[in-house]
């Protein structure tokens, strides 16, 4: 951090563009997306399917490259997986042949480092996994599995946590619980979090800012600030402000899809094969 540290974003996405080569031609998944993410903020990303949310997150993680543009973490361009970044995937993605303890130590095995047992124990306690260390993944519910995944992602103290629709497969109550848990952990650690979600409610409850993406090509359409103090309670979800924000975002997503559909109809008709 320099003297102007507060102005330097933690994570900077510069004109990120991604083209997938598919059987039916090139697909522009991400079109010149630029975004600054400040240290210690929770940024949530919503958008229709095909808006490149996951592609954007994977580019941030260094797991997938970009066709052009770059992602800069602490002033350095990301060129591959980085130990400053923890990742939580859709589905818990636990290794089914390892018990909970062994799953959580998996990152350390790969990196060849010694795990910080005290830190892991405190995380386990924090997410309510005390006494679950020897359980196999199949013995755990979806919510418990995702808790293990959360501990695993935080076990090596990353400064950025990337979450790819982590709670999409959970029921509404478990999801709410997990949202509270993420906020608690965030307040403890002040980890910078980027969370992708299908749920506008989740995006509002957790986000300091919400990025709304548009589909085909994936672009950043809108960015909203969420002006609620933390810790937040579910009560904010029934306020007028949240109601209006939810509707605005819904309109942005649905409106975008409808206009895309109208445009898509004409070329589709022209492309009907004729002799």
């Amino acid at each position: 951090m320099n003297a102007m540290g507060s102005l330097e974003p933690k994570l900077r996405v510069k004109a990120a563009t991604k083209v997938y080569q598919t059987g039916s031609g090139d697909l522009l998944a991400l079109d010149r997306c630029s975004l600054d993410i400040q240290a210690g903020e929770i940024l949530t990303v919503v958008g229709p399917s095909g808006s490149g949310k996951t592609t954007l997150l994977w580019a941030m993680s260094g797991l997938h490259g970009l066709t052009s543009g770059e992602v800069v973490l602490d002033g350095k361009t990301i060129k591959g997986p980085n130990s400053q970044i923890g990742m939580v995937f859709q589905e818990a993605n636990l290794l089914p042949w390892r018990n909970v303890d062994a799953n959580i130590r998996f990152p350390f095995e790969i990196k060849g480092e010694k795990p910080d047992e005290a830190w892991i124990a405190s995380l386990m306690h924090r997410v309510g996994l005390d006494g679950f260390g020897r359980k196999m993944p199949r013995e755990l519910s979806g919510g418990m599995q995702q808790r293990v995944a959360l501990v695993r992602a935080l076990s090596f103290k990353p400064s950025v946590l990337l979450m790819d629709e982590p709670f999409g497969a959970l029921d509404a109550f478990t999801r709410e619980e997990m949202n509270h848990l993420v906020e608690e952990i965030y307040l403890d650690t002040r980890t910078t979090i980027v969370l992708i979600t299908h749920s506008i409610e989740e995006a509002i409850f957790l986000g300091d800012r919400i990025v709304v993406m548009s589909a085909r090509p994936g672009r950043i359409a809108h960015i909203h600030d969420v002006p609620f103090a933390r810790p937040r309670s579910m009560d904010i979800m029934s306020t007028r402000e949240v109601f209006d924000l939810t509707n605005t975002i819904k309109r942005e997503i649905v409106g975008d899809q409808q206009s895309k559909a109208r445009i898509a109809q004409r070329p589709a008709a022209a492309a009907t094969p004729g002799n």
Binding site: F89, W97, I110
Partner: peptide, 27 residues
């Protein structure tokens, strides 16, 4: 591919991916 991506996110080499993900999964 999700489990391979997981291992790669920790910087796993191809050999590590083989021994720690592919082989146990194939057992």
């Amino acid at each position: 591919s999700g489990k391979i991506a997981l291992a790669r996110s920790y910087g796993a080499s191809t050999l590590q991916i083989f021994w720690k993900v592919r082989a146990p999964m194939a057992l």
